[in-house]
Design a protein around this nucleic acid. Structure first.
Length: 297
DNA sequence: CGCTTGCATCTGCTAATCTA
DNA sequence: TAGATTAGCAGATGCAAGCG
């Protein structure tokens, strides 16, 4: 059974006229008649009711036509999907990212990219560090944008930008009038931390370990904005990046004089996994767009 | 192992024939 | 007489065997 036999069959079924079907298919009428005959022979049943010059689908033909139509539609859809995936101009990039990057960083990045490649679309997933890394591991995302750096298990991580971290205190706190402080200034303060599902947790753990003390954790929040909200409510102090949306009323942001506190946001992907041309374009775009950071690392 | 050759099969053509 | 079917032919393609 050949693809063209099925197309010939559907054309005759649609037009109910062998000669007109042959004209539409740009073959001779006998060739079409022969092809239909061979198909019927292979199936072991007649597909058409022939009365004189009229050809009409019989009940076998109707059943078969329904299935052939569905199969041809599926194959066409498959071809189209592959075309979309492999054509960089009309492809899709699947990207997962941390909650806190959704306010400004990701929209700005995607907006810049789409100015250059307007026909490339994005599938976006937003969640905790654990969630987005799982998405990448399972192949549900082409990339994830996260912090801190993670590698191993066949992952590649490209640093994009570095963000300074600030000591955040409630307005009216004894430190709130200071512009900068040493990290040791919050040794005895109730600290609003983050739970381990948040990637940022390991960043401040490393920083506190490097300075030789552990903060007195009062609460562990799920994400950065919740932590900022707790500080705003006067429940403690925290150490946070100056990400858009975190600078709430009722908080003061103090530069950390010692040690240098920063975090790097990067793009991660699986090294050996196939990347569509559209995904490669996005990776190259990120690499060029943020090259000043990449070259520093 | 790779290239060539010959046979078999398939597809589509024209011409002839059949049928309503 | 128009349109469908059949017969026979040519070209294209696939496959297996033979050869270097």
């Amino acid at each position: 059974m050949e693809w063209n036999q099925l197309e010939y069959f559907l054309t005759v079924a649609r037009l109910q006229h062998v000669t007109r079907a042959a004209e539409e298919l740009s073959i001779t009428q006998p060739a079409l008649s022969h092809s239909i005959g061979k198909l019927e022979e292979e199936l072991g049943v007649s597909l058409f009711e022939r009365s004189g010059r009229n050809v009409q689908l019989n009940r076998y033909g109707k059943v078969f036509a329904k299935r052939v139509e569905a199969a041809i539609m599926e194959i066409r859809k498959g071809k189209q999907e592959i075309e979309e995936l492999t054509n960089p101009e009309i492809g899709t990039v699947s990207l997962s990212f941390l909650h806190t990057l959704g306010n400004e960083f990701i929209p700005t990045l995607i907006s810049s990219f789409r100015k250059r490649y307007p026909n490339i679309h994005f599938e976006l997933y937003q969640g905790s560090n654990t969630f987005i890394i799982q998405k990448l591991e399972k192949g549900a995302s082409d990339f994830c944008i996260t912090s801190p750096k993670f590698d191993g298990n066949g992952m590649v991580w490209l640093p994009l930008i570095s963000e300074d971290l600030y000591v955040v205190v409630p307005k009216g706190h004894k430190l709130s009038n200071r512009r900068e402080v040493d990290l040791h200034a919050i040794t005895e303060e109730p600290f609003i931390g983050l739970n381990t599902s948040c990637g940022f947790r390991s960043i401040y753990d490393d920083i506190f370990q490097s300075v030789g003390f552990h903060p007195k954790v009062a609460f562990e929040a799920e994400d950065l904005s919740t932590a900022a909200g707790f500080v705003s409510a006067g429940l403690g102090v925290s150490l946070l990046p100056s990400t858009a949306g975190l600078r709430m009323d009722g908080t003061s942001w103090l530069t950390v004089k010692k040690p240098i506190c920063s975090c790097t946001i990067g793009l991660a992907w699986k090294d050996k996994r196939y990347l569509s041309p559209a995904a490669k374009l996005f990776k190259d775009f990120c690499s060029n767009h943020f090259c000043y950071v990449s070259t520093e690392d």
